[in-house]
Design a protein around this nucleic acid. Sequence first.
DNA 1: TGATAACCGAGACGGTACGTCCTGTCTTGAG
DNA 2: CTCAAGACAGGACGTACCGTCTCGGTTATCA
Lengths: 209, 209, 209, 209
Amino acid sequence: MAPTKAPDSSRRSDRSRRAIHDAALALVTEVGYRRTTIEGIAARAGVGKQTIYRWWPSKAAVLMDAFLDLAGRAAEEVGAGPGETAPGIPDTGDLVADLKLVLRATVDELNDPTLEAPTRALTAEGVVDAKLGAEFVHKLLDPQLALYVTRLRAAQEAGDVRADVDPRIALELLIGPLMHRWLLRTLPLTHAYADEIVDYAIGGLAPRT
Amino acid sequence: MAPTKAPDSSRRSDRSRRAIHDAALALVTEVGYRRTTIEGIAARAGVGKQTIYRWWPSKAAVLMDAFLDLAGRAAEEVGAGPGETAPGIPDTGDLVADLKLVLRATVDELNDPTLEAPTRALTAEGVVDAKLGAEFVHKLLDPQLALYVTRLRAAQEAGDVRADVDPRIALELLIGPLMHRWLLRTLPLTHAYADEIVDYAIGGLAPRT
Amino acid sequence: MAPTKAPDSSRRSDRSRRAIHDAALALVTEVGYRRTTIEGIAARAGVGKQTIYRWWPSKAAVLMDAFLDLAGRAAEEVGAGPGETAPGIPDTGDLVADLKLVLRATVDELNDPTLEAPTRALTAEGVVDAKLGAEFVHKLLDPQLALYVTRLRAAQEAGDVRADVDPRIALELLIGPLMHRWLLRTLPLTHAYADEIVDYAIGGLAPRT
Amino acid sequence: MAPTKAPDSSRRSDRSRRAIHDAALALVTEVGYRRTTIEGIAARAGVGKQTIYRWWPSKAAVLMDAFLDLAGRAAEEVGAGPGETAPGIPDTGDLVADLKLVLRATVDELNDPTLEAPTRALTAEGVVDAKLGAEFVHKLLDPQLALYVTRLRAAQEAGDVRADVDPRIALELLIGPLMHRWLLRTLPLTHAYADEIVDYAIGGLAPRT
DNA sequence: TGATAACCGAGACGGTACGTCCTGTCTTGAG
DNA sequence: CTCAAGACAGGACGTACCGTCTCGGTTATCA
């Protein structure tokens, strides 16, 4: 039952970890997830294969960590410093405007060519592998969605959203269509589309006049 | 341009084609998409590998065809005969009831353990491989979504939906959240959820009183 | 037990037979025996694979026939007409001169770049496959060697070779060294070498003075 | 020029090397060279195919090494120890008797059922593949033939062989007929035949009385 | 003068082996 | 101990041929 041998994480080489992250992201972007191999990552990172196998259970796990790291560094740049986390959804009092702002930002993120390949790869892997999907949702998606819940609860208190609306469902009404278009590439994902989604959805969430 | 040599499809063995479809679906369901191999499909189908490579460019393409075949056969059973296509969305005059019926059916389909594995596999593959994704959308998804468009246009004419609403977007407001839950497995996918989605979405689509 | 189906050789297409022979010889010369395939011969000859399998049991058998045909045609050119066979060893009364003449001709034949590839291929195949080797010896080698036997018997009657010498062995004393050099490529195969072999061998065959 | 990547031979597994040798020899003896496959050798040796491809360029090369190893081990058993090489041709003063002894031993070796299959396979391969043939001659044949040269030179000094005789050619006069019979299977290869060859050949080599 | 049987070209089929690539484990030597 | 390097057993890849079979389309006897 014991996991054979637990590596001593205090002695872990940070240099290698970073190099592996970078190599993984670069390869996924360059040649695609399928053709990215552990051997390839190791070679590119100038690292022994064992160093990868020692610390990660699978290619997907490497990419997930790399992606988390990337997201963390991106957040640091935007926020004030390393202590801060995601900036949250603004509350200007105008719910529709606030949501449009955030959804437009999400659209931009999804359209960012740097992030696209790894995000798609991880999402796809999660669709098929429940364990990995759960990790993906828990580590990457949930924190994002929690922000929506917070903002929507505030809107409920302000009377902009009906009290009987479940914020989890309301949020999916906003995010679902976006993801649908992005994942299936049915139609282009634009700011205009984000705005329309907000307009339509709010109609179903706002108090009946 | 021409891919080296086009096989003569009139000589194609129907027996082999069917056996390959069956083997592919069975293996994907039993051991998962990842561990399903072309060699495995060939062995299970009692077929030479070359017979697969002759007619399909990839494992995903085999599964796609197998799935299409399965869907076609299922449709034939439900419909009156081979001439008929998908049954369409009923139009009882009660838009909300009609949509709930169809969304509940979609929920049941997504929860069907027989269909789950291949559907997830194909969707995931399409998320990463744009070409395959386009084929998936075009062959499987679009026909489904066209039915919604038809029903929603009828509703617009009946005055149940505002005339300025784009049916493509309205449809995504309904389907998007469902797919989001199913793909990411954030929360269970139930009839109650389908009903709520319809209730919320209709609020944004119906005429302002 | 019955050989499935005996093809009717009277309806055999001579055009195909010739085309197959030519293709086989050309391919063996161009790409070597190993890389010559039945499919390749069929394609080059503009012939269906079955036409080869109908008339020959193996690649080696095709080559053997092709070679026999080639040898036959070459013999026809040299000889007066189609009725004649190999010209035989001359009997000028000078045994040593006659043998040198023939051995030099053999050396030239073995060094002929057109014949080399197929001859080596057939010989090598015969070394490993006893059945084919026997056929090779019977159809190609024995007729040649019989000529030596005839000439040597004449020499015995003329008193140039001891009466107790077995002509089969005498002949191997002459041919063996030649083949050894040619097969193993230990040293170059020249007219001078042929002459020396005859000189040495005759010493062991001629009557003790 | 460099063949892509040279493996580190100091890390080479001796266990695998031996297992591959044994498997190769066993399979060639059991099912013949043609039906011996690299996959078969790997499976029999309990080895990955790559381990064969890493160290040998072809099936023939594997067999060559295996054969060399076998010959080496056999020589060690006969000789005093690992330092010794082949035992050489005895020099009792009686040239004819010495040669008959050695030729009889060669006959026995060629008739040995254990050695026959691999020897034939390698010889045949060498007949067709010049590079491999050269290796075969250089590594296996030349050392043997050098022994004859030594003995024949001694005979020349002792006056048993004429001084103007080229030992290389004399040796081929002895070995050639043997090889001819063995390779082409024209007639059985016996001790009596070996004796006759020596008798005849010596007639051509000994000083004229 | 058709029928009808073969050979023929073509090439799909079930298979086997190829030689390559990658997986995940294990071993070696340097730091 | 970790690490870079890479050999190892294993297994799937996609390709090339094998030898068999089936399909029209010519021939070339026989009824």
